[in-house]
Amino acid sequence: MSLEVTVVGQEAAAEVLAVVRAAFAARPVLDPPADALSETEASIAALLAPGGGLLARLDGRTVGAVVLDPDGDALYLRRFGVDPGAQGRGIARALVRAALAEAAQREGLRRLVILARQELPLTVQFWRDMGFAGTARRPPYVEMARPVPHTVEVPTADAMRALGEHLASVVQAGDLLVLSGELGAGKTTFTQGLGAGLGVRGGITSPTFVIARVHPSLADGPSLVHVDAYRLGGAAELDDLDLDTDLDDAVTVVEWGSGLAEGLADAWLEVRIGRATGGTVAADVIDPEADPRVVELDPVGVRWLGVDLLAP
């Protein structure tokens, strides 16, 4: 199975319309009915004019579509649909991820917004699962939004520490940061910078052998809770950690926490660290200066809407 998502313009109006008609016709009858069912090729072309759209093709067949509608700092997802015959294959999720990536490349966009029918709880839950949170009610719709991720090139270990130290000026008590990346990618180096910026006590090292450490603030700021979830068997074990602090009063960093730690909070900041080159070194002699990193900062939840992570 080959799934490809591409950016398209008005020239793809007929393909987008075909997906919209198939997807919306298969939905339950609503009152008032969905406006999408009255679309024409001309009206879809007009919708595509400002910001284009995305088409998903499965083995060459068009099976998913969304119109991208920029409005101020928001990118609205309009006429989002997947052909009923292709559902259950991750196409909707792929469209959302592609929309996030596209928004991240366009200047000035800080949030993705969708208007979901409140009578369709499974649809609303899908958007929640994709990191969207309700921001307003516009009957018969609920407006849901999520922040746009940022990508930062980090050429050295010092730059990784500096990124962590900068984010210390953005985070606050109760925030959760979920770190991911291969062994030696720089997760602990990032946390060292965060701890320095927060002004906490104690040297920050990898917590692998103790699973979690609490670093109290040396000033009036929040403590730093540093957790390594690598050896944990699941989210339940993470939730059962006997931490000598209230997470609402601390900034919590969980290394190797993707897929485990998100249940600790309603909002979190994903910090995904990847190598910018393909070079590798032995696991026990990893050189943090061996090659540059690319860090994706992916904020999830209402807490991060309107927060400029990279503001000086």
Rank of each mutant, 00 (worst) to 15 (best):
1 M>F: 06
1 M>I: 09
10 Q>S: 15
12 A>F: 05
13 A>H: 02
15 E>C: 00
15 E>F: 00
18 A>Q: 03
21 R>N: 02
30 L>S: 12
37 L>Y: 04
38 S>H: 08
44 I>M: 09
44 I>A: 01
46 A>V: 06
46 A>I: 00
47 L>N: 10
47 L>P: 01
48 L>F: 07
48 L>K: 03
53 G>Y: 05
55 L>K: 04
55 L>P: 05
56 A>P: 10
56 A>V: 09
60 G>I: 01
62 T>N: 03
69 D>S: 15
70 P>K: 04
73 D>I: 08
76 Y>E: 13
77 L>F: 08
80 F>E: 00
81 G>V: 13
82 V>M: 13
84 P>S: 07
90 G>Q: 12
96 V>Y: 01
96 V>R: 00
97 R>D: 14
99 A>H: 10
116 A>L: 02
117 R>C: 08
117 R>L: 13
118 Q>E: 15
118 Q>F: 08
121 P>V: 02
121 P>Y: 02
124 V>A: 05
124 V>L: 01
129 D>C: 01
137 R>I: 11
142 V>S: 03
143 E>S: 09
145 A>R: 03
146 R>Q: 04
158 D>M: 06
162 A>K: 07
174 G>Y: 11
176 L>E: 11
178 V>Y: 07
181 G>T: 11
182 E>K: 05
182 E>Q: 12
184 G>A: 06
184 G>Q: 03
184 G>H: 02
189 T>S: 04
196 A>Y: 06
199 G>S: 11
202 G>R: 08
203 G>Y: 10
204 I>R: 09
204 I>N: 08
209 F>Y: 15
210 V>N: 01
214 V>D: 00
216 P>Y: 12
223 S>M: 06
225 V>P: 05
232 L>R: 10
234 G>Y: 12
238 L>D: 08
239 D>G: 13
240 D>S: 15
245 T>D: 13
247 L>E: 05
253 V>A: 15
260 L>A: 09
261 A>R: 02
263 G>H: 12
264 L>W: 07
264 L>Y: 07
273 I>W: 06
274 G>A: 14
278 G>K: 02
278 G>A: 14
282 A>E: 15
282 A>H: 14
283 A>K: 10
294 V>K: 09
298 D>R: 14
299 P>H: 05
300 V>S: 01
304 W>S: 01
305 L>I: 07
305 L>P: 03
312 P>R: 11
